[in-house]
Each structure stands twice: as C-alpha cells, then as structure tokens.
C-alpha cells in the first residue's frame, strides 16, 4: 500500500473541505472496495477522508412512501432497520457479501463504486430512486452511466438516497460462485402505476431496466406474464463464469422467481 494521510472528520462540512482542498484526497466509507484497491495499488490518494464518524450520514427513515437512507448507512443497519418499511430492499441489503462485509460496507460506497455486479443499483434503478449529494439531486435513471461509471463529479459525496417504496417487491440474486456477488440479480417492484424491473450483473453497460418485462408485468404482476419473454443476449457480459446467453437465460428465470416471491 502507498503511504497516505488519514483523517476522520465528524461533520460533512469538514470532510468536504478536505476533499475540496486536495484533488488527491479520497473519501473512505466502509472500505470494503477501496481498501483492497489500495492494497493492489489501484488507487493512490494523498489523503483518505473517512466518512464513518459523520453522524449526519447515518439515518434510516420511511416517510410519505419513501425510504430515505443516509449515504453512510451500512448494509447491516439497512437490512435490519428498513425491514418493516421496505422488506424487499432490506432483504437485498442482507444478501450483500457476508456478515463482516455488511458491518462496514455502505450504500453510498456501493452506489459511488457502481460495480456492474453490485446489488443496490438494481433496486435503486427499479424503484426510480434519487441520489442526493452535497450539491444536487440525481435521478437514478441519470445516475448510473455504465460499469463503474456514475454521474458523480470529483469530490462529490452521496449524502442520502431516497427510494420510493413499492406495493410489493423482491430481489433475487444468482450468486457468482466465487465472489458471491450477483452473476445476475433482478429486482422487481410493483407500484400503483405499473411495474419496474432492474437487472444487475448481466450487462456490459452496467445496471439496466428490462422494459419489456416491465410492460408485461404492468399488465399482470404474475410470473406467467413473463412467459415467452426472453432477454436478448446482445450486449450482455460473457466471462469465465457464464456466457451472455447463459446470463440472459438466468435473468429471465430469476425475474419470474422474484415476481413469485414479491411481497
């Protein structure tokens, strides 16, 4: 690991000031992605600005049909504290990594990283969430811009994520056998005005909405509504763990399972 300075401010304003002052400084949240990257010397920050002591970033609340999460909330806290208000989302958080990863890893870190196999993006996109930063609000449809690419600017911090709560929802993750990330993950949600489907793990372009499935499920929110519908393999990821065709098939299968499981 390269050498760096470490700071752990207790207010967002202090953290932003350090990030603004120094182009080479980088935010550190749970560290579950960034620390391995530092060890591999994939990142060389001058300073790490830990966000874990900032109380303002820790908050879980459901009001007016929206689940609102502080950007520094951990997978573990979300799995536990959001379970009543939004069981589909809480269950997704409870499936990320393992217990130790969930103690540290945060929703802000995961959304900033936008790993093409990460779990949250499927749900945040499917539910039409809003990513709130220190300077603006970004709709999920504009936020996710491809593998490891987001609308975030240099030094921009996710302070909050607002997710409309659907009537029923579920996430089904088909785990990649080694990493346990999503080889394919599908989040389905039924809102009063229609159904939405987010797919992660599958595409070269990162998370996406499967609009044909959304149309079918908006007619009838049943697994059978997806009969005969298949996801085109074009543009999907092919790697040692599965071909594009395999991923397309898995996506269609687990989308049905997710609809059946939705509550």
């Amino acid at each position: 690991m390269y050498e760096f300075e470490f700071t752990r401010p207790t207010t967002l304003a202090d953290a932003l000031a350090v990030l603004k002052d120094d182009d080479e400084a980088q935010a550190l949240a749970g560290g579950q992605t960034l620390i391995p990257a530092l060890k591999q010397r994939l990142a060389m920050p001058s300073k790490l600005v830990s966000l874990t002591a900032i109380e303002e970033l820790r908050d879980i609340r459901a009001t007016g049909g929206v689940l609102s999460l502080g950007g520094g909330e951990t997978h573990r806290a979300i799995a536990h504290d959001a379970a009543e208000a939004f069981p589909g989302f809480a269950a997704l958080a409870g499936q990320i990594g393992d217990a130790a990863v969930r103690t540290r890893g945060t929703i802000g870190g995961s959304l900033a990283n936008n790993d093409p196999s990460a779990c949250y993006p499927a749900a945040v996109l499917a539910c039409g969430g809003t990513i709130v930063t220190d300077r603006r609000e970004i709709a999920a449809d504009d936020y996710f811009q491809g593998m490891f690419t987001t609308a975030l600017e240099e030094g921009e911090i996710i302070t909050r994520v607002n997710i409309p709560i659907p009537e029923v929802s579920a996430y089904v993750k088909f785990a990649q056998p080694a990493s346990r990330f999503a080889l394919v993950g599908v989040f389905v949600a039924r809102f009063p005005d229609g159904a939405r489907v987010g797919v992660t793990g599958a595409s070269e372009e990162g998370v996406f909405r499967w609009t044909e499935a959304e149309a079918a499920l908006s007619e009838s929110f049943t697994p059978e509504a997806l009969d005969g519908l298949s996801l085109p393999a074009e543009g999907l990821i092919s790697d040692i763990h599965g071909s594009a065709g395999y991923r397309a098939h898995i996506a269609a299968v687990i989308a049905r399972r997710a609809v059946a499981a939705a509550h």
Binding site: G31, P36, R76, V101, T103
Partner: peptide, 26 residues
C-alpha cells in the same frame, strides 16, 4: 489479506469485521 477468507475476523463494538479490511485509525 483480500477480505475473502475471514481468518482475520474480530469484533468491533460487538460486530464482526475483517481486520485486514479496516485501518487501525478507524
């Protein structure tokens, strides 16, 4: 040393964390 194996798990305020993936200053 890459947060895959769990041999380094300790308790931080009662919760499990991988000691290889957290800085002492945290």
């Amino acid at each position: 040393d890459t947060s895959q194996c769990g041999a380094c798990v300790i308790h931080l305020d009662g919760s499990p964390v991988k000691a290889c993936s957290i800085f002492a200053l945290e």
